[in-house]
Simulated assay, not measured.
Amino acid sequence: MNDRVLYDYWRSSASYRVRIALAIKGLDYTAKPVDLRSGAQSGVGFTMLNPQGLVPLLIDGDVAINQSLAIIEWLEETHPEPSLLPGDATARARIRAAALTIVADVHPINNLRVLKYLKSELGQEQEAIDTWGRHWIELGLSALEEIAEGSPGPFLFGAQVTLADVCLVPQMYNARRLQADVARFPKLGNIDKRLNGLKAFQQARPERQPGADQ
């Protein structure tokens, strides 16, 4: 039995990032779905493992790590090839900055628990909530489009898939799901299409995960 276990939710973009990274690194794992819609992440069983009550959570032997970027950076340090943070210190900082544009600036305010709060506690209509989501997604993608325009291609930072690409694909998936105007970002669209043609990205697709809506 594989002692590497990933607690995730099929449509969680944070979990999606980790699945991509694991696939790129060629690391097998056992998936344990946590249904966010039913509130399973708040159950005693899961919060004993991760007091924050969020996915993803990676357990590898006696190591347990939460937060998607922390997991991916740990994978990078423990399984360095192929590298998701190539180049010198400056190049790696730029890759991290692009990834954080999504992970720190866009994703948190479009997280399911935030959107639920807007509706249940603040009484916002679904149309307003969707407008909120699209605004912040499109703002973040605008910055990344500029990076893409300066890339020699075929990916965000050249010929090698990086942490930034791992974060981009799940965010583009979310953008389309919320009907954001992704046509405004043709360079990102092309990069996303190339990335989704790679085996590791295909394996990590939400619809291919246990518990996914059919």
Score class of each variant (00 low, 15 high):
171 Q>R: 00
147 I>L: 11
160 Q>W: 02
140 G>I: 00
169 V>T: 14
152 P>F: 03
179 Q>T: 15
164 A>Q: 09
135 H>L: 13
143 A>M: 07
124 Q>F: 15
146 E>L: 14
160 Q>T: 12
150 G>L: 08
166 V>P: 07
143 A>R: 11
135 H>I: 11
166 V>K: 06
144 L>I: 03
179 Q>I: 15
160 Q>C: 11
135 H>D: 10
144 L>Y: 07
166 V>I: 11
133 G>Q: 01
124 Q>T: 06
142 S>R: 11
135 H>K: 13
142 S>P: 00
123 G>W: 02
149 E>M: 13
133 G>T: 01
174 N>M: 13
159 A>L: 03
172 M>G: 02
159 A>P: 02
142 S>H: 07
173 Y>D: 14
161 V>C: 02
166 V>M: 11
135 H>W: 12
124 Q>N: 11
168 L>G: 14
166 V>F: 10
141 L>W: 08
123 G>P: 05
130 D>T: 06
133 G>K: 01
160 Q>L: 06
144 L>T: 06
134 R>H: 02
128 A>K: 02
161 V>E: 01
174 N>W: 04
129 I>P: 03
171 Q>G: 04
148 A>W: 00
128 A>I: 00
142 S>L: 08
130 D>Y: 02
174 N>V: 15
124 Q>A: 13
127 E>H: 04
143 A>F: 10
178 L>M: 14
140 G>E: 09
139 L>I: 08
146 E>A: 15
146 E>C: 09
140 G>Y: 09
120 S>T: 12
172 M>A: 09
141 L>P: 07
147 I>M: 02
122 L>M: 13
167 C>R: 06
138 E>Q: 08
132 W>E: 00
168 L>N: 09
156 L>K: 08
170 P>H: 02
